[in-house]
Design a protein around this nucleic acid. Structure first.
Lengths: 237, 237
DNA sequence: TTCTGCATTTGACTTGGATCAACGCGGAGT
DNA sequence: ACTCCGCGTTGATCCAAGTCAAATGCAGAA
């Protein structure tokens, strides 16, 4: 159920945050100002849906805070998490920009806030501001790349390798050096993480147990990695 | 090995064909004329590469004739076909447009011809012609959608279901009615098709044998389907 | 036509990961 | 405090699909 969540104008803090989106990297200040003028921010409670698979977008959604699981939700089948969207990410920008139905549902895994740019204002801005329209294109290109990347991961690697990749990427995102020991924090609960990695929670648990003898210790969401390069090697680069 | 294939200006026939690309759906004639003026067409022999994974694009490639397998090609691992590109398709447009390294290799599965639009002229044209820049965005959005679609197929369905989907889509593409009996032709050889569907040739063969008792008869590349709706149902819509 | 080499099929076996079934543990409600 | 319940872990078993191996069919060369 998409809850009738309250909408409000973005706070000054929100505006500063939104201004820094990659979406606006090459956009003029005037463009951004115009867009923010009509971009209400809604609060989405834990486990509520910001987007339902199959619905047609009428605005581009940007995550201001919190975290969403982008997942399949076909009746009868158990849902599968395809990707996560966190602060600063756009929610399926390609669907919004081309006004085609969303292929996935976005569920808030924790209480989240989301800004919503009406498509009309977006298109108008893109028409006026070439930098911004280039930003739009760049964002979608990035989304394509990461989708293809996932497809490759899924076709080329085993479940434990995908978990290893996940850890290596978390370490990189946390600014850890690429060699030696590292500590990272898992962002998601076991069930969500397992589904994101294309495995069952049971199997993720077993993988974690196996990884202990590989120098990877997981306690709750805290992970200690003895040899990051070795882990990357196991993951297949 | 990317062979030094001969490049030539597009023929009148090529130009007509290229004009009809979705890429130019909303582009002005002047834009298209400019682009075609600097778009050499090369011939790529069977099993030669038009694009190597990891290389950075310097032009946008459009398939004028023939067919390419977009596949992984990591040393040591056996290649996996992620998608096919045929006449009228762009080859990994998102990579070209954003000038980021290609994530996949493009191998000609048959002798093919490919037009090549230099990025500089492309960007200049997009800056001048908003219709064209919208076309570019739309193409990339479509590519994202199909990548996500594949990800869903791969996560949600079994190998036989993916084969069934493939048949249903071929039937739809061939303009067959959505119900009753249908005849379609497989486009690819068994090995390529199996890899595209994320299975081994052996398993595809077995799947085909199983499908006989489901009213699907495959002889070489010719397929007879007794009940298309039933097949679609089996595939999971 | 016959030969030769590759593509496809069929068969036997292995295996990664899913499923089913307990069990332990920690936090919220009483 | 105690109970309940949802989360995560562990164990046992099953199954879809991969691997290895061999037979068959088919197309182009001689």
């Amino acid at each position: 159920m998409t809850e009738p969540s309250l909408e409000q104008a973005p706070s000054a803090e929100d505006r500063r945050r939104l201004r820094r989106l990659p979406l606006f990297a090459n956009a003029g200040d005037a463009t951004v100002h115009d867009l923010l003028a009509f971009a209400p921010v809604s609060t989405i409670g834990r486990n509520q849906f910001a987007v339902r698979e199959g619905t047609t977008p009428n605005s581009l959604l940007a995550v201001v805070g919190g975290r969403f699981a982008l997942m399949t939700q076909t009746a009868g089948e158990q849902p599968q998490v395809i990707a996560m969207a966190g602060r600063g990410d756009l929610v399926m920008a390609a669907s919004a920009i081309s006004a085609t139905p969303y292929p996935l549902t976005a569920r808030a895994v924790e209480e989240s806030r989301i800004a919503s740019f009406p498509l009309a204002t977006l298109w108008a801005a893109a028409d006026r501001d070439h930098g911004f329209s280039a930003d739009l294109a760049r964002v979608v290109c990035g989304d394509w790349r990461s989708a293809i990347g996932q497809l490759k991961d899924y076709r080329l690697r085993s479940a434990p390798q995908r978990f290893a990749i996940h850890l290596v990427r978390l370490a990189a995102a946390a600014g850890q050096p690429h060699q030696g020991a590292a500590e990272v924090a898992l962002i998601d609960d076991r069930k969500t993480l397992a589904s994101l990695l294309g495995m069952t929670p049971e199997n993720l648990s077993r993988t974690i147990a196996q990884f202990r003898e590989r120098g990877v210790t997981v306690t709750g969401r805290a992970v200690t990695i003895a040899d990051l390069a070795g882990l990357a090697d196991f993951a297949g680069l």
